[in-house]
Write a protein that binds this DNA or RNA. Sequence first.
DNA 1: AAATTGAACAACCGCAGCTTA
DNA 2: ATAAGCTGCGGTTGTTCAATT
Length: 190
Amino acid sequence: MDKRVIPGGEEAEVRKGPWTMEEDLILMNYIANHGEGVWNTLAKSAGLKRTGKSCRLRWLNYLRPDVRRGNITPEEQLLIMDLHSRWGNRWSKIARQLPGRTDNEIKNYWRTRIQKKVKGGESSECHNSMLSDEASTSQASGVEVMGAQPSYPPPHTTNPETFGTPFPTESNDNFWADDEFWAMQSFNGD
DNA sequence: AAATTGAACAACCGCAGCTTA
DNA sequence: ATAAGCTGCGGTTGTTCAATT
């Protein structure tokens, strides 16, 4: 990753890229004990080699307990479209109207699924097509990914120095079951 | 079965606004 | 009054996975 070596010998390294489970745990535990905010200080105090920005993003988008992950419901989709027509790309504002959804998630959803259809369809009928499409995808996908499911890079894809994580790294799924994840948190915390 | 393409998601970057010393 | 630091936002890119050829 990005490593900057300070001449003095001390390394000021800033990690980038996907978060590891260990980093997530550190961040969650720290926030559980000290609260969120003052991200730069938090990053340093927690011993994370991440920028405050990165910590904030990770927390807000994935680690917060109330974050909802998984398929956007047709109702939510309608709401997103409605609010977007009113407010434009004010993602954070739109996200506030959708409890548990993050601006990043909504932004991605819009760009990948809605925008191109709006471009192509360009009418109210695209509402319908989109809704039906949503319905089908939410079923077709089959995987109910509700609840926080942080994903982690497979050990072999990350640099070896990353961590010899003592954590369960499933062979093909790099996911933690929600329960496992939070259980692990409480296990580590307090 | 392998290669290619496209979709979805996660994370980083740059900028603007706000706060504080 | 202003400079510096921090936070939040929106845009963009990179990676992975699934579908298609």
